[in-house]
Design a protein around this nucleic acid. Sequence first.
DNA 1: TTGCATCCGGTACCTGGGTACAGGCTTACC
DNA 2: GGTAAGCCTGTACCCAGGTACCGGATGCAA
Lengths: 148, 148
Amino acid sequence: MSAAEQAGLRTGEVAEQAGVNIQTLRYYERRGLLAEPHRSNGGHRLYPPDTVALLNVIKAAQRLGFTLDEVADLLDAGRRRHPSPDLRERAIGKIAEIDQKIADLTTIRASLTEVVDARCDSLTNCTCADCPIPYLTIGTTRPSGDRA
Amino acid sequence: MSAAEQAGLRTGEVAEQAGVNIQTLRYYERRGLLAEPHRSNGGHRLYPPDTVALLNVIKAAQRLGFTLDEVADLLDAGRRRHPSPDLRERAIGKIAEIDQKIADLTTIRASLTEVVDARCDSLTNCTCADCPIPYLTIGTTRPSGDRA
DNA sequence: TTGCATCCGGTACCTGGGTACAGGCTTACC
DNA sequence: GGTAAGCCTGTACCCAGGTACCGGATGCAA
């Protein structure tokens, strides 16, 4: 059993297993998404094994359109055992955001399904001559009043 | 009735109504998201009125984590009356992506709800001492094999 | 103890999605 | 027809999120 096995994963291992760049690990550390890991005597980082899972979480959240700052918030909210009232507030806000996202995605999904199910395809000469923008409904439910 | 009324909206009007920058309109035009509008004799752009709605759609899709290229694809898919088989293929792919996004969002939502509902809050000294990463499940369902 | 793969910090660079500015022409209203 | 607001093209710049590169130090196995 080598020393590495009991001390943790090194950057290269984490990066490889999580499918991210080594530089990205250090970047996330700077951004506060990854806690500073332990170091070897020589100063090399040694990560706890669940870091890989955490990175997958981060990447998943990003794919959903959250910024790194937001991801940091989400992780923070989830991490604390007894969230402060403030944190609760923000979590509630995030839930509302998420609900909106889900609603929008559902609308887009429906539109795409129509395309695939050939609502227009088979009708070929689709009744809705001016059918150009099928996702229009999304626009009408946008979250905060943009319009004057 | 002025000439403008029958010819279309000018950039400033569209930008204002859609809540975007004028520069953004031209940027979208360059990127192919907005068709080149008609021009006045003097060369000023004159947009059809539904451009505003279209912009809202674009912005909504962006909030959901789609890139501009992807938005362009989505719009394209929705626009065609009789989609080519290829387009159908891509639409199907997008639907799968969207389903994944919805699933992930749902998971995150559930985790946040737990936080808000004080599953830990009231337990204060939460049983799950190592509860640190509640969204872990997301990572395990990530879309395409990242791992070697 | 040598040698190669890795890792270190620091800095520079890249892409996506915009945004700002300069210098000049149009529009619209008096 | 004068003039202010608005628009034109072109180019430069900005921010987020990474990536690449550099010169030097570590890790570890033979």
